[in-house]
């Protein structure tokens, strides 16, 4: 039994159908628990007051926004190398989720920035690279929409995803060179020294786990929809033949 078994759409449908209710439920529970814990059960920061509560949305959303692109990159590579259709469709399914998470990150960041830095928007490297990430998602989705032939669309978007990843990383470092910025450093890194205090860390971790489950659930659900759309096309074509 290897992972590649699920490259078969039928197997994938069976397995994802079985897993989906559980992972959706887990996502709902964890997100609700983490956000409620963060919102009701944590003290205010002595400098930032209650705005520190935005942290529980902002940071997990940001991590999903970046890692969704990473997942799309891996899925695109699998499609280009091994030609598994499910992989290409999963990459397509992940893009709107990543775009929404990028939007959540930008909106919460702007609302947080207003009282803390005195401005909604600052051309800081971290903020700016998220804006650019959002543009990459938009371009990727637009290319999917524009091409009729499904295999060509999968190929071209995969190539764009590969090239885009390289340029996204280049932009990130060019931006650091361009402006040093206001944003604080990493807050959930494994390096304990940099981290936020434990009271803030645990609820954020629970929310992050919830967001990961939410991401997986949404990608599975949307991939299932894409597979059904493919199948519908085939059925309609066969009906026309007979």
């Amino acid at each position: 039994m290897s992972l590649w078994e699920y490259a078969n759409p039928r197997r994938f449908m069976a397995a994802s159908g079985a897993v989906l209710p559980w992972i959706s439920g887990l996502a709902a529970v964890l997100v609700a628990l983490g956000l409620a814990w963060g919102f009701f059960g944590t003290p205010d920061d002595y400098r930032q007051g209650s705005t520190v509560k935005i942290f529980y949305l902002h940071v997990p959303a940001a991590m999903i926004a970046i890692n969704a692109w990473l997942m799309m990159l891996v899925a695109s590579l699998i499609w280009l190398i091994r030609r598994h259709h499910v992989s290409a469709l999963a990459a397509k399914a992940a893009a709107p989720v990543g775009l929404t998470m990028t939007l959540v990150t930008l909106v919460t960041g702007a609302i947080w920035g207003q009282p803390m830095w005195g401005t909604w928007w600052e051309w800081d490297p971290r903020l700016t690279s998220f804006l650019i990430l959002g543009l990459f998602y938009l371009g990727y989705l637009a290319l999917w929409e524009a091409i009729d032939d499904p295999d060509a669309a999968a190929d071209l978007t995969s190539v764009l995803c590969l090239v885009g990843s390289v340029f996204a990383i280049l932009s990130r470092y060019a931006l650091v060179f361009w402006n040093q910025g206001l944003h604080q450093g990493a807050s959930l890194s494994l390096d304990k020294e940099q981290n936020v205090a434990d009271v803030f860390w645990w609820p954020a971790m629970v929310t992050l786990a919830g967001f990961v489950c939410l991401f997986v659930a949404l990608v599975l659900l949307r991939t299932r929809t894409e597979i059904r759309a493919r199948r519908l096309k085939a059925v309609v074509a066969r009906a026309r033949m007979s």
Binding site: I54, V104, W112, R222
Partner: peptide, 29 residues
């Protein structure tokens, strides 16, 4: 405290966006 509007609007907008995404995915499915 004094940041009530900011915190609530951040939660409100984010949860609306996420709920919209979930709803859209479910309905399309």
């Amino acid at each position: 405290g004094k940041y009530a509007a900011e915190v609530l609007s951040a939660y409100g907008i984010s949860l609306t966006l996420l709920a919209g995404l979930v709803l859209w995915s479910v309905i399309a499915g």
